[in-house]
Design a protein around this nucleic acid. Structure first.
Lengths: 186, 186
DNA sequence: TAGCGTAGAGAACGTACGTTCTCGGCGGGG
DNA sequence: CCCCGCCGAGAACGTACGTTCTCTACGCTA
């Protein structure tokens, strides 16, 4: 069955923007990759900023879905699930087309001058944070929000380290740090 | 006394590029802010990418210098010095013109297609890492490199969190996590 | 003082891109 | 069968910008 114009646009936008950056890909390239007319594109997204924000929202859903799937299927205690987050990060970092966190990249690229994009980045980071808080609540420790926020910092740091530095040691190092923090919080 | 053309260019480049992004500022604006002719600029830096890489190197030196100053003047044990790193991050995040880590931003903006910029970003992160390793060696723990790398992840995570999210809680949270990691590593 | 190299100011060029406009064809309703 | 509105294709427009070229004026040397 045929996906809708919007779906094809978002799929093309995700592939192109993530691989080559937002400023590195023109509207017309997304349009032609999706097989959608320019007129239709501007009907759906009245400016590039709208398209980019929609791409980020779509990627947010896919990304958190993949993470949650991995964590859920890894079973185990809340502690094991929180550690499984870092295992999944390691798998993600090792993918051949990994290019860092799309949201951090987007923030660096246009965050200062694109309110819709900034809002999408914030949404994503807050949803990721909320997800970690939800897992941490299962720990029955005294401060699940604090633990989750500390693990969030580790995860974000691992993403940027993995993006910038060639060696993919970041996820393992983050996992070890997470285990130590979880032990300390018990 | 008059600073050299190169110094004025780098100062102007740092102010403009950090505030508004690399793609958001044209060569001519840097040139005119520095009061240097276009010809002279191209003598010193044969392309924008060279100028940007030089700006990043200059910022790297200033940034690490400020950090090292704060840490050195805060005295204390190696452990206290490592924690002072996060205190300084908190001060930095609170500055009114704070806009995240210039290097992470630059990576997101042009990292994929500007080898000189990518190299400058890597250099900076490695020098920061080496600085933390130097401090961690004073701990006499079993694995100073591992500890330093875990603290590096926390610091990077705090930088991105502070940049993206409005509330500046990141530095304190990172400091608490760092204290827990240091306690666990002893 | 005459000539020359150099440097600055800024025009010019090529390109890329976001956005809008125009044209031509196709389909559906009378 | 004819007309009308819509849609896709792509030309066009305005702008921004990296880079190069041109012209002019100044200062140094013989």
């Amino acid at each position: 069955m045929n996906r809708s114009d919007a779906e094809r646009l978002l799929a093309a936008a995700e592939a192109l923007y993530y691989a080559r950056g937002i400023n590195g890909v023109g509207i017309d390239e997304v349009r032609s990759a999706a097989g959608v007319s320019l007129k239709r594109l501007y009907q759906l997204y009245p400016s590039k900023e709208h398209l980019v924000a929609a791409y980020l929202d779509a990627r947010d859903q896919r990304w958190r879905g993949r993470l949650a799937d991995h964590v859920a299927h890894s079973g185990g205690s809340p502690r094991d699930q929180l550690l499984a987050v870092f295992d999944w990060l390691g798998l993600w970092f090792a993918e051949p087309d990994f290019r860092g966190c799309a949201f951090i990249n987007a923030f660096g690229e246009v965050g200062g001058s694109a309110p819709l994009v900034l809002a999408a980045v914030r949404r994503h980071k807050e949803l990721f944070r909320d997800y970690l808080i939800g897992l941490a609540r299962g720990l029955d420790g005294p401060d699940p929000v604090g633990v989750a926020e500390q693990l969030l910092l580790l995860a974000e740091g691992a993403m940027t380290a993995a993006a910038v530095l060639p060696e993919p040691r970041a996820a393992q190092q983050a996992r070890r740090a997470a285990a130590a923090l979880l032990a300390a919080a018990a």
